[in-house]
């Protein structure tokens, strides 16, 4: 038996909006730790890892580990039927081939339930090694989204370079080229407006902007994004989900063969 009650139901809608462009079908795993998901896009270029910790739910009951295969477009369709302030409860019986989303209005005067069929998904689970990153950039998520959007209008790939001078986002395309340099800036009114660049070693990596832009669909989840770079590894773009967990996107670099 599974019963997860999330008072801030809109969070779940935002999570779905953040990943449904990248991944079509995925297994949601439920354990005593929390509600999680790991999935790759169909080309195996990007991976998303989501964790909503059990403590973040008002009520969390998961009698045994359960993996529920869902089509994310269908799940998003169902969640769209909830009100923005609704409490969402996810329910499933052991061995059931469906999951139920229950929506309660804040004043309890409207209660709906939507049942969705589950599906069998053959998915590989990958071990993500602990890593020492050459550089970690913490910046306003809206600024990162703007840079990715702006550069994608010029080129298809972005080179992200971190040096003593700051972090540079560069692209090149048929109509020209663009460079955006950000310097560390901690003299801001609010901590979430700061740009913090932690560099252990200079690093420069090339990525497909299409994926970066897809990751920025998570912007409504957090004011801050953290970008971790290492020359040997996929970049990690992380959005923290307030008091609940995180959504992390991993993107494999473009490599000179």
């Amino acid at each position: 038996m599974l019963e997860l009650r999330l008072v801030q139901g809109s969070l779940l809608k935002k999570v779905l909006d953040a990943i449904k462009e990248l991944v079509k079908d995925a297994n949601f795993d439920c354990s005593t730790t929390g509600f999680s998901l790991q999935a790759m896009d169909s080309s195996h270029v990007a991976l998303v890892s989501l964790l909503l910790r059990a403590e973040g739910f008002e009520h969390y009951r998961c009698d045994r580990n359960l993996s529920m295969g869902m089509n994310l477009d269908n799940m998003a369709k169902m969640l769209k039927c909830s009100g923005n302030d609704d409490i969402i409860t996810i329910k499933a019986d052991d061995g059931s081939d469906s999951v139920t989303f229950m929506f309660e209005s804040p004043t309890q005067d409207k209660i709906s339930d939507f049942e969705m069929k589950l599906m069998d998904i053959d998915s590989e689970h990958l071990g993500i090694p602990e890593a020492e990153y050459h550089a970690i950039i913490r910046m306003p998520s809206a600024e990162f989204a703007k840079i990715c959007r702006d550069l994608a209008s010029i080129g298809d790939t972005v080179v992200i370079s971190v040096s003593k001078e700051g972090v540079k986002f560069s692209t090149r395309g048929d109509i020209g080229a663009a460079n955006v340099v950000l310097r560390q800036n901690t003299t801001v009114d609010k901590p979430e407006e700061a740009t913090i660049i932690e560099m252990n070693e200079p690093v420069s990596l090339t990525f497909a902007l299409r994926y970066m832009n897809s990751f920025t669909k998570a912007t409504p989840l957090s004011n801050i994004v953290t970008i971790s770079l290492s020359s040997e590894l996929p970049v990690v773009v992380e959005y923290k989900i307030a008091e609940m967990g995180y959504i992390r996107f991993y993107l494999a670099p473009k490599i000179e063969e």
């Binding site: 991976l47 689970h125 990958l126 993500i128 090694p129 991993y250 494999a252 473009k254 000179e256 063969e257």
Partner: peptide, 14 residues
């Protein structure tokens, strides 16, 4: 130009 690598090149199946 540089070629797109895949996630499975870096992370192993468990």
């Amino acid at each position: 130009g540089p070629k797109q690598s895949t996630i499975t090149r870096f992370f192993n199946k468990i």
